[in-house]
Design a protein around this nucleic acid. Structure first.
Length: 725
RNA sequence: GCCGGGGUGGCGAAAUCGGUGAUACGCGGCUGACUUAAAAUCAGCUGCCCCCUUCGAGGGGCGUGCGGGUUCGAGUCCCGCCCCCGGCACCA
């Protein structure tokens, strides 16, 4: 009531789903995309969604993606978008790189194909620079994010505290850093391991080592993790343990990952399961340095300290000696966002032999997605096939240069769209900061839990950076977050990408938009997945018909005793008020949409039993008002039949607190915690009067049976409980 | 293994602050009314066990994954387990 609410709609229209559909059906991705958008828009209108269509945006339209490109350039200027060779996930079906966040169980989230690890030069956003910040939340509203979402993000970022320690290899004249969370076990290190991809390994001239590295390169990731026994090879080199000068043999083994920490570890077989397995396989020493009580042993001057103190003291000592320092490591990796596909936002970069990577000048934006002969994926970016588009003069030196032909991941488009909603037609900037600061952060965000480590993290990263740039005045994109469940059909999630969707069209044809909307919300809590059943909706259809009939009966009731007497408060009138209170509280505060429907059903049932009640008209109006968000078409019609005009111009009904209080209530009388009698008593009785009435009950007397009452508990407006010996 | 979320009838679920015979509302099922019949609609019943029965109903016990505990009173709080779902995981 009285709030200004923005209800926009947009389409994340670039990307693989649209492009793959176009490939399967034939035709240009743009045609398919725009046809689908039109169909979805029509469906939403048929269902009666209240959307401000003037603000509609689509990621694939030039007016939108020119500002995606503009933002990219801002990130590029700050070094937050960079190109580098790195191990990436390659989807052999879609013929493109896929972000870590959208590889699920080793498979491409879009097509379900197993991805391969490849070393490729790709574009990355430096989200890792914000790893620590993204663990901390800037909005009090963050408290309203579901616990599980926060946990998923925390796990994904994967912060661990420990130390970086330098181990010297004399033969190569280098200090090799390792990351460890257990510097307290430093005295227990008995060997040292390099990942096969570690740069130092190339310098080791040893056939066996070369052979091993070659062998492991072919089975990475999954295959490596499921290996039963640890494999590795001795390099002939030794490192010096900085804390005691011991010389430890250096191995190359693929249980050490280049992607995490420094790609090298100190191995402490006594206190690490994996190191122990390796030590047992290679017959290496195992030295315990912490006893059962968590106290350091065999640890030189640190012996006798509890482990947590030992940790600190050893790191302090290393720092003084210049051989180590406290360090933090993250699991999160930079976001790879370049795709070797056609249907996406072009990356506004020009590669020049002399000047290197040059940003397309802002004044030359947008870089319009060119037409190409054949946009099917072939592993090389399709944009490169349009040579007229590809070759342009270098903006710096004017020499012939080449455009970047990769396109952006569609999650770049969706990392800022909510800001565009407030100013969708601005052609001088992505948005006006004043408007954004007025409307945003988004008060209530709704989306699937499946985006916890993807879209929801990317957007938080984008907004952090945009705040630093002065583009927005806040650091979190979304306040309250709600994860809706998915409709299921035959046990699996109905979704566009899975293709098991019963289009709402058929259901609307059969049952009507109001019934479909009401049933979907009545099925259960909105955050739960729900199996669609046709028999379920029949119940809702019956209810809506009953409501229709009962309200019409009231609307046309001309019997003389029927009038809207606000003075005379009846049970039905009170029921209407408690229904308002419940529905309002459940929707606003609890985000429960199924219980208000149940409450209106109850009200309707009661109204049907007493259509001549003096409060019948009020009860009918209440039922119609409360059902409006669910069944807006029918509610609007009934409202008119009740002699009013436009229901959607009416304020939400308010319960009269005075009428929520009943004049009498049912007093429950317990003896030793068991209900023994109930009686209707006036609400304004004092405690001792309640006890008096309770004691008077013959039923209660029979249970007290002359026994001694040890204690009497009175809960106002509820019950009296006698405790006997 | 670590972290998070859950477990209530035949089914979807409700019980908002420890205070009404747990299971509202709906689905399904059973019975009846209306009907030539069906549909639609309406009414009643529908957790388990036992006792009494004059057939109206009444009475007792057990029940919210399992076992304990706190309390006058526990679906709700505490301790210990079991199971299901999700995230992370050769992450040093």
């Amino acid at each position: 009531n009285g709030w200004r609410v923005l209800r926009p709609m947009g389409f994340d229209s670039f990307g693989l789903p649209a492009e793959n559909a176009a490939i399967n059906e034939g035709g240009h991705p743009r045609e398919i995309t725009e046809r689908n958008i039109a169909a979805i828009r029509d469906q939403m209108k048929r269902l009666g969604y209240a959307i401000d269509w003037k603000r509609e945006i689509s990621a694939h339209e030039v007016e939108y993606y020119r500002w995606t490109q503009w933002l990219f350039l801002k990130f590029f200027e700050r070094g937050l978008a960079y190109r580098a060779a790195a191990p990436v996930n390659w989807c052999p079906y879609d013929q493109t790189v896929v972000a870590n966040e959208y590889v699920i169980d080793g498979r491409c989230d879009r097509c379900g194909t197993l991805v391969e690890a490849r070393m490729m030069e790709q574009w990355f956003f430096k989200i890792t620079a914000y790893a620590d910040e993204l663990l901390h939340y800037d909005l009090p509203e963050w408290g309203e994010w579901p616990e599980r979402t926060k946990t998923i993000q925390r796990n994904w970022i994967g912060r661990s505290e420990g130390a970086e320690i330098l181990f010297r290899i004399e033969e190569l004249d280098v200090d090799v850093p390792v990351f460890t969370t257990r510097p307290d076990t430093l005295f227990g290190a008995t060997f040292f391991v390099l990942a096969p991809e570690h740069p130092l390994v190339e310098r080791i001239e040893d056939d066996e080592v070369r052979e091993y590295v070659k062998r492991t390169a072919s089975r990475r990731g999954e295959a490596r993790a499921t290996e039963e026994t640890k494999t590795g090879v001795f390099t002939g080199l030794y490192v010096t343990n900085p804390v005691n000068g011991e010389r430890l043999p250096v191995y190359v083994a693929d249980y050490v990952l280049m992607e995490y920490g420094t790609g090298a570890i100190m191995a402490v077989p006594a206190h690490d399961e994996r190191d122990r397995e390796f030590a047992e396989a290679f017959d290496l020493a195992i030295r315990q340095v912490i006893d059962e009580d968590g106290v350091l042993i065999n640890s030189g001057e640190f012996t006798g300290l509890p482990a947590d103190q030992g940790k600190e003291r050893i790191v302090d000592w290393l720092a003084e000696e210049g051989k180590g320092r406290p360090a933090v490591s993250y699991r999160l990796r930079d976001w790879s966002f370049s795709r070797q596909r056609y249907w996406g936002c072009p990356i506004p970069i020009i590669h020049c032999d002399d000047c290197g990577m040059v940003a397309v000048p802002e004044s030359d934006l947008p870089v319009v997605l060119p037409e190409v002969e054949d946009y099917r994926p072939k592993g090389v970016p399709p944009l490169a096939s349009n040579e007229e588009w590809l070759y342009v003069p270098c903006p710096k030196c004017g020499k012939r240069a080449r455009r970047e032909a990769d396109t952006m991941d569609t999650f770049v488009d969706s990392s800022w769209y909510f800001l565009r909603y407030v100013d969708p037609h601005n052609d001088r900037a992505p948005f006006d900061r004043r408007l954004v600061d007025y409307w945003c952060p988004v008060s209530q965000y709704i989306g699937g839990i499946d985006h916890a480590t993807g879209h929801l993290l990317y957007s938080r990263f984008f907004v952090r950076v945009m705040r630093e740039m002065g583009l927005v005045g806040f650091g979190e994109p979304f306040g309250r977050l709600f994860h809706q469940g998915w409709l299921q059909m035959g046990g699996s999630k109905m979704s566009k990408s899975r293709g098991n969707v019963t289009g709402p069209d058929d259901l609307v044809d059969e049952y009507g938009a109001d019934a479909v909307r009401t049933y979907i919300l009545f099925m259960g809590p909105a955050d739960q997945d729900m199996e669609w059943t046709d028999t379920g909706i029949e119940g809702v259809v019956r209810f809506l018909r009953r409501l229709w009939r009962v309200v019409l009966e009231v609307a046309t009731n001309t019997r003389p005793m029927h009038h809207n007497d606000t003075q005379q408060v009846t049970a039905l009138g009170r029921k209407a008020h408690t229904t308002i209170a419940k529905a309002t509280n459940d929707i606003e505060r609890r985000f429960h949409f199924h219980t208000p429907i149940a409450a209106v059903m109850e009200l309707t049932n009661e109204l049907g039993r007493s259509p001549d009640d003096p409060a019948a008209r009020f009860a009918a109006e209440t039922a119609v008002s409360l059902i409006q968000p669910y069944a807006p078409h029918m509610a609007a019609e009934l409202w008119e039949r009740l002699g009013h005009e436009r229901l959607w111009d009416e304020p939400w009904p308010e319960a009269d607190p005075a009428l929520l209080e009943r004049e009498t209530f049912e007093l429950v009388v317990q003896v030793n915690g068991r209900v023994r009698d109930r009686m209707e008593v006036p609400s304004d009785l004092a405690d001792d009067e309640l006890v008096e009435r309770a004691t008077a009950s013959p039923r209660v007397q029979s249970y007290l049976d002359g026994g001694k009452i040890r204690q009497t508990i009175v809960v106002p407006k509820k019950l009296v409980n006698f405790v006997t010996d």
